[in-house]
Design a protein around this nucleic acid. Structure first.
Lengths: 183, 183
DNA sequence: TTCTTCTTGTAGCGAGTGCTACATTTCCGA
DNA sequence: TCGGAAATGTAGCACTCGCTACAAGAAGAA
């Protein structure tokens, strides 16, 4: 359905790099076009309007994120839920993931503001992420879906805490999640 | 230090109401002024520049939030950490708190984007919140500060999940936090 | 009253926003 | 080689943004 030429792909890649550095919701057409070596005129021509540009960008970024995540953490079952969470948090804290974290929090804030396009994309990303986590949970988990969602919720919390400079709190949550909370 | 007249207070209250409905980072001077029955010219006059307006607004909103939270959940020790988390989540999901959740996620996203003023305010809010939670933790908690930070991290995760329409995942995390994760 | 200081309205500047009208070039099939 | 379609450049429109210059009223002190 979405036939994109090699040229389009290059444009998207360049814009994605710009967005990963500067944020998504603050991006405007002219800077985006400049980063991609084209003009706002051309972006509108190819994507219809700004929403089209943002939508394509979101799709591109989401795909890049999951492939990067798969690269960093191949599909294999972890010994404990805590180890899996710690591994994902480590990846999310790496410099190359920082841009994705920024964009993700932009999506979340826009969703909370009621922008349904963002909320839908955000929900879809979470759905994919739940499956991704469930496939890496220790074997014998009674309710993998439920466990994956709980783990993801804690992960989201750590991203928020990291964003406001409270990685210490995030660490406390990870440690607590890894133990049973009693220590 | 911050002497604010009754008139200023009214202006701030009106602007806060506007921000709670429409978001913080998307707010601009003219709509803000209109909501407060004044002019952009006057906002600059009283607060210096837009950063001054936003700063005063953040201060006002933070104060309103903690007083509302104290009202909803007075200072008393809960029987379990899970019960405390569930109580806070219930409050945060109430319609009157929705605006604060929106604003909070705006602050988080701006912090991630590197806007230090927001990051500092966000960090301070978390600090206050940690103390607030610690004071309500069950007695006999070995490390209240650590437990409070872990609880808060999970709470932040639930807010993110709620924002993107995955309250179900948040519920899973709450249930898991309340038990020991084995059920 | 007169003078000074505080407060407010009017108007506008320069920059940026998404988007469009119009003309031109480029390219590919007939 | 020609003709139509796709692609691109130039210029600009109507709007919003944060902020400011200037002047006029309001209020209080002398």
């Amino acid at each position: 359905m979405n036939e994109i030429s090699a040229k389009q792909e290059k444009v998207l890649a360049a814009m994605a790099a710009h967005v990963l550095e500067h944020g998504l919701t603050t991006a405007s057409l002219r800077p985006l076009a400049k980063a991609a070596g084209t003009s706002d005129r051309m972006l509108i021509y190819h994507f219809g309007d700004k929403d089209g540009v943002i939508g394509a960008l979101l799709e591109y970024l989401a795909a890049g994120f999951v492939s990067g995540l798969d690269m960093a953490i191949p599909e294999e079952r972890f010994a404990t839920k805590g180890a899996l969470l710690a591994a994902v948090v480590t990846v999310m804290r790496s410099p190359i993931a920082a841009g994705y974290a920024r964009v993700w929090l932009d999506i979340v804030a826009a969703s909370a503001r009621g922008e349904i396009a963002y909320a839908q994309t955000g929900g879809a990303i979470i759905d994919g992420f739940v499956a991704w986590v469930a496939a890496r949970l220790p074997e014998g988990e009674q309710n993998p879906d439920r466990a994956a969602r709980a783990l993801l919720t804690v992960l989201e919390g750590t991203m928020v805490m990291d964003a406001v400079g409270h990685g210490d709190a995030a660490d406390a949550a990870i440690a607590w999640f890894s133990g049973d909370g009693s220590q």
